[in-house]
Each structure stands twice: as C-alpha cells, then as structure tokens.
Design a protein around this nucleic acid. Structure first.
Lengths: 160, 160
DNA sequence: GCCTTATGTTTTAATCTTAAAATATTTGCC
DNA sequence: GGCAAATATTTTAAGATTAAAACATAAGGC
C-alpha cells in the first residue's frame, strides 16, 4: 500500500468512527427523549429521578452519595439535589454510615420501592419495544462490543 | 417449544435489550463526559455550544432556530439561550428570514468558523482515539444497525 | 378585510448539571 | 495529642434543559 493510500484509508476510518459516534449520540438522545416524555406523562416523574431510584433499587442496602454519582456518571453535587427532592417526597432516605460521619447512604424507602416497581415494569416494556426491530442475538452482540469499548475507555482514562 | 419456554425466551430477550440500552447510555455518557472535560480545558467551551456550532458548520447557509433544535434533539427554548451566548461572543449571528418575519436563521460568523475549525479538528482526533479499539468495518456495521434502529424509532413516533 | 387557527420564537419557572469552593470528618505522621 | 493531607458531602454560581405560556406573524376561510 502506498503512503497516500494509507493516509486515505486512515482518514476514511476516522470518518467512519465519527459517524458512529454521532449515530450513537443521536439514538441515545432520541430514546432518552421518549423515556422522559413517558415518565412525565404516565408517572409524573423525570429521567434523572428514575435513574437515581433505579440505581438504588439495584442496591437494596443503599449507596453512598459518591457511589451513586459514580454509577450514574454525574457530578456529586448533582445527586445531592435529586436525592433532596426524592427524600422530601418520602421515596428515598439518607442513612448515616456507621464509622464514618462524613458519609451518607441513600436508599429507597418501602414506598420508594413500590413506586419504582410500577415505573420499572413500564420502562422495561418501553425499551423492549424501542429495540423490537433488533433480534436478541444482535442485541447481545452489540452490547458485548460496547462493553469492550467501555472497558477500553476506562483504562485509557489515566492519560487519554 | 412449550408455552413456558416461549415465555422464558421472551423474558431473556427483553433483559438482553434492556442491558443493551443501559450499555448504550453508559458509553454515551462516558464519552460525553470526556468530551466536555477536554472542550472546557483546551477550548474554554462547553459541549452544547460545540454541538450548536457543529450543526451550523454543516449548514453554511444557517439553520432556523426550530431546525437547529430538531437536529440537536433539544427543546426550542434551549437553543435560544445557547445561541444568545454564542451571539454575544460574536461566534454566531441571527439573520432574519426573508418572507417570514417570525423566523430567524442562526449561522456562524467568519470568526465562528475559524474558532470552530480548531475545535473540530481536535474533536475528531479524540473520537478517533476513543473508538480506536474498534475496526473500521465494525464501526460501519454498528453505525448501520443504529441507523436502522433510529429509523424504526422515527416511524414509531406516531403512537409509540 | 377580519377572524380563527397554525407556526416560529422567546420567555418563564422549575429542575438538572457542572466545576469549584466550602464544610466536616478521617487518616497518617510525628 | 496535634496537625497536615486526604476524603465525603454540600453549597454556590453559572449554564443547560424542559414544558408550558406568551408573543409575534402567517395562512386560510368567509
């Protein structure tokens, strides 16, 4: 392959990757928009609130505030506000961490678990429907490739 | 296949699709976070501002405010504020649309084009690096599947 | 020409989001 | 024990985001 051909190929690959990223972003925004609309209309809640409750539902013993922000990939200060509002409504409670008075665990209340269960069932059905055109094998395959990508991104985080 | 087996398979498929969605969301957030950090540190700008300028860069004649919000999949009011700030800095200008005094076109100024060119070159290099572990054929394949998904979501938008 | 309805944008109020500063506590060193 | 550095959270200020209301103009019926 000539030097020129190498450069050409490389540029084309770069364009292909950029297009993939734009497509990833577009699909994600579209689905997030749909979910937001439906959560608002049918459950009077928001996507960030649902995300927080979902994370806490997967961790029944609760999560520290910093773990919560890590899982959701949002800032620390961000979850403070969302948990504040969920706590005001009695869906989430803050529990002190024994042995570390700086830290707080957030966890779902009994009522929070009930409310979330109703939202989650519908959420799963919506997602199933959005991805209905994609076979299960295809979905598993794409998820596996994205997982590889996520892992590569993690290890690259050091320097970039 | 027994009814029970069908139900089991169907539930597993549903879980696979949900996992794909969570993976899609996770990867997208991770990359967005990286881009935000780099745009802030190296170009003193934000991801929403970059997105607006990028859309305007692809449409040199400008875009109506509503077209801009449609392309970016954000609300109308949202782009008003971002364009306001970009216009204050002389990177974007609002141009009246002949024949429709309600509408406004937003477009990059000459300086906006220069500033964006510098940001875009780096942005493309970052993306290329994030996706480096993925071959070009694989990237094209995934982009094609996501495009199908996006089209299915569009046509479903009617009722959902 | 009017009047209703539709369309394009901005404004408003509330929530979300971030980065950075502030606060509180813990840990390690001496 | 005391003090510096590290860690966990909240607060703050600015920007981003949405849905809904307000505003301005356009289009179509009569």
């Amino acid at each position: 392959m000539s030097d020129q051909a190498e450069i050409t190929r490389s540029t084309d690959d770069s364009k292909a990757r950029l297009r993939l990223w734009l497509r990833l972003l577009g699909v994600t925004r579209k689905i997030e928009g749909e979910l937001r609309d439906r959560l608002r209309r049918e459950h009077s809640t928001t996507l960030p609130r649902f995300d927080v409750m979902s994370a806490l539902n997967r961790h029944r013993d609760g999560l520290r505030m910093s773990e919560l922000s890590g899982v959701l990939k949002v800032s620390n200060g961000n979850v403070t506000g969302i948990v504040d509002r969920l706590a005001e409504e009695g869906l989430v409670e803050r529990v002190p961490v024994p042995g570390d008075r700086r830290a707080m665990m957030a966890r779902l209340t009994a009522r929070g678990q009930e409310v979330f269960a109703g939202q989650a069932a519908e959420h799963e059905a919506w997602i199933d429907r959005f991805f209905a055109g994609m076979g299960a094998a295809e979905a598993r395959n794409m998820a596996a490739r994205l997982k590889e990508l996520a892992e590569a991104l993690e290890t690259k985080g050091d320097k970039g």
